[in-house]
Write a protein that binds this DNA or RNA. Structure first.
Lengths: 241, 241
DNA sequence: CGACTTAGAGTCAACTGGACCTTTAATAGA
DNA sequence: TCTATTAAAGGTCCAGTTGACTCTAAGTCG
């Protein structure tokens, strides 16, 4: 990379700063939530924003994302699903100067939010719908990043087994279905959903125990399987009216 | 982004340089090729690498990618499919210092390679298989980037209509099938492939003309349709032994 | 004309998916 | 104890899809 003669001679490369921003999703009360912070510094002071921070000297991008995840949520990053989403680099996206942001998508079960003494003191879960419907506005280009993250998550649910990353183990098939329903925003047929999940080898593994609900038949419990991709995929169109 | 107190106070953000690298694919002679350049400067002087260059002051990432595409291939970038692939930012990925590379994936028909007087003088198409099999080694982490680009392209062929980006218009169904076969590295059943393409609304549009081949029945000609996503997807498993 | 080649249409059985129904295993209340 | 209720789990049915395969169409070449 960075070899072309013109780039070398005619124009100096831009000097800039790199940051990571995190789209951290969870499902609580059957609705998809995203972790937002209230900004303590200018610009956009007091407004909601995605958690994130600058990449440090000598720090890899993934490492910076895991560090911020830990600092902002208090959760050891290695237990959550974390994947790079997209790089945002418009020259005027940050009024402080040229800052490129590498956005990451993180998925996890409904997390306790340890706050005392951490950077997460201003962090809170917000329903994604509240942002999409304009009840919450985000700083910088973070709404765009959130939308991209949501679309990625929706797509990943179709083709991979990451929905299990939203579930605390052990979980039931109904737990898993509610993840799909919350992320896709669609009701699914419980019976057909079960059939597809069970026939996909390596998606979930029964642990031989059951969970007693408040009411109704007890549900079998599962843990995550070894498969990462879904063949065939679970299609979003398969909703129930 | 870039808000956490610790990132601000305890450690200065890393100052770095951003580059774009391009994975430019085309299909020639039924095989997938990638555009490589021979590096003219240190480091890795004389070795093969992906085309790319530094992001300029005030230049957006996509704009930098389009500019490099134009400079390195001589092709007006707005005719090719171009999408961001991934950001690579390991601190030691470039011996010159901290350089983050935003990789882009570009797809196009078999292009004439105008070379005179351009930066593309050292550019050439190489079979992707030659890189994967170790006959060509790439500078920096470019083999990793190439592999990621290949996987992205293979996946995109399943879910989107971008295969048409490889075809010069007008094209035949057989032309399109050969794209899939080259990118996936699998033979496909011509009859079943045709059936799926034709029934996917908006994938291809007949122009009402035919192409006379050297031998055999003439083939109907098509241009790209308006659809961008394939529902249902074209699955890689649907090969023919 | 007949052999050859490729495009393109058609057939068929197996499989898949959505809609819907039935049974099962628990609780709550009469 | 019996019944209603709830949700899990399993089954049925039919329409649509798919992979494997066959057959026809429309050209060229000798």
């Amino acid at each position: 990379m960075a070899t072309s003669k013109s780039a070398h001679r005619r124009r100096p490369p831009a000097s800039l700063t790199a940051a990571v921003d995190l789209v951290i999703f969870t499902v609580r009360d059957g609705r998809l939530h995203v972790l937002l912070i209230e900004r303590g510094n200018m610009p956009y002071r007091g407004e909601a924003a995605l958690p994130g921070g600058f990449v440090r000297d000598g720090e890899a991008l993934d490492a910076a994302a895991r560090r911020e995840l830990r600092e902002e949520t208090g959760v050891a990053g290695d237990t959550l699903h974390l994947e790079q989403l997209h790089a945002y680099g418009d020259p005027d996206r940050d009024p402080r100067g040229r800052i490129i942001s590498i956005a990451y998508l993180a998925l996890g079960p409904d997390l306790p939010m340890p706050q005392a003494g951490t950077d997460a003191s201003a962090a809170h879960w917000s329903p994604v719908s509240a942002v999409l419907e304009g009840q919450i506005t985000l700083a910088f280009d973070h709404e765009r990043i959130l939308r991209d993250g949501l679309e990625r998550a929706r797509s990943q649910l179709e083709h991979t087994t990451i929905a299990t990353a939203f579930c605390e183990e052990p979980f039931t098939i109904a737990d898993l279905r509610q993840i799909y329903e919350a992320v896709w925003g669609l009701p699914l047929d419980p019976s057909n959903f079960r059939r597809k999940v069970m026939k996909t080898e390596g998606f979930v593994i029964p642990i031989g125990e059951r969970r007693l609900p408040d009411v109704g038949r007890p549900a079998a419990l599962f843990r995550r399987g070894l498969a990462e991709t879904l063949t065939p995929p679970l299609t979003r169109s398969g909703s129930v009216g």
